[in-house]
Simulated assay, not measured.
Amino acid sequence: MQKIRRRLAMALCALAGCLVGGSALPQAAYPAKPVKLVVPYPPGGPTDIVARVIAQRLQTQTGQPFVIENLPGAGGNTGAAAVARAAPDGYTLLVATTAHAINPSLFKNLSYQFGRDFAPISQLTSGPLVVVVNPALPAKNMAELIALAKSKPGELNFASSGNGQSTHLAGELFNATAGTKIRHVPYKGSAPALTDTMGGQTQLMFDTMLSAMPHVKGGKLRALAVTSAQRSPAAPDLPTVAETVPGFEAIAWNGLLAPANTPREIIAKLSAELRTAMEQPEVRERFEAQGFAAAWNTPDAFAGFIQAEIDKWAKVVQVSGATIE
């Protein structure tokens, strides 16, 4: 009996040692079940399209479904708040946009903190907006637009897809850097904003290439410039705003984030899978067709990018005086 007790004690000690050393029963590989990608905007928009391209590719690579859930509302805050409250297990992720870097300084009462409540995984896309005007406007380029706006301070209007969106703050950044006073008119989405710009109720808009360029090709809008630092491969003949207003840059981006405290090994796994996904020619081609470029980066690099965006747009919000309760 004493020998049995000694052997049992030795076995228990060995088991305890395994548990302490982390070599107990093997953990299930991630992902072991469907992963939910929360898109905080309605179906069919640029962010939704990017998310579905990525979801399809990640499902192919991992063998697990990546399911899109659209949770629109409050300028992207409804979906972001839901992910911030989700379990940090890698099975609920947020497809974030430029607006999420703008919102911390624009909204007074957010239920989450963008810089604290999320773990960055990777940027997904980066792309310019395009400055489009009603064809009746007597401005054929950015220099002429600036001259016209300065000759009629407060008389020109620019439409946006909503308060706090990149289409809004890009216009405010333009006012600040070009010294113009073009008034902002917010809409509930890009489609009605473009409709009124084409109809002449507003004179211009800073919009995504995906939404605006079909109307440019149809002759209902005139494109003046793109807002990136370099010309866009999707419209190489269009100059940049910076060619007229040095230093101006406003890009639209998407990125993938997990709730804070998600295990680092899950973040690393997702980052690696995204890198593989965005190296695929078909993924790059689908992004480029919408005026976006694939933009993978490491979690640490993406965290730095997000903070720089938060700081940049906070200054624009302060100068514009914009605020939302």
Score class of each variant (00 low, 15 high):
273 E>A: 15
1 M>T: 02
58 L>P: 13
52 R>S: 13
132 V>S: 06
254 N>L: 10
138 P>E: 07
203 Q>C: 09
30 Y>H: 02
229 A>N: 01
98 T>W: 04
78 T>D: 03
136 A>C: 05
183 R>H: 02
34 P>H: 05
24 A>E: 12
285 E>H: 12
289 A>P: 01
256 L>W: 03
43 P>L: 09
234 A>N: 02
226 V>W: 05
86 A>E: 03
217 K>A: 14
313 W>H: 06
210 L>H: 03
146 I>T: 13
235 A>F: 12
203 Q>T: 08
211 S>C: 04
86 A>W: 01
99 A>M: 08
160 S>H: 10
53 V>M: 04
196 D>N: 15
233 P>G: 14
174 F>G: 12
66 F>I: 05
1 M>R: 07
206 F>R: 04
106 L>R: 07
250 A>T: 15
80 A>C: 08
288 E>L: 13
306 I>S: 04
191 A>H: 09
67 V>H: 03
124 L>T: 13
307 Q>D: 07
54 I>L: 07
135 P>Y: 14
46 P>S: 15
222 R>P: 09
174 F>K: 10
210 L>M: 14
234 A>M: 15
323 T>S: 14
183 R>C: 08
8 L>H: 02
175 N>H: 04
235 A>C: 11
271 S>W: 00
216 V>N: 06
318 Q>T: 12
110 L>H: 03
21 G>K: 05
150 K>D: 14
162 G>T: 08
40 P>Y: 12
154 G>Y: 14
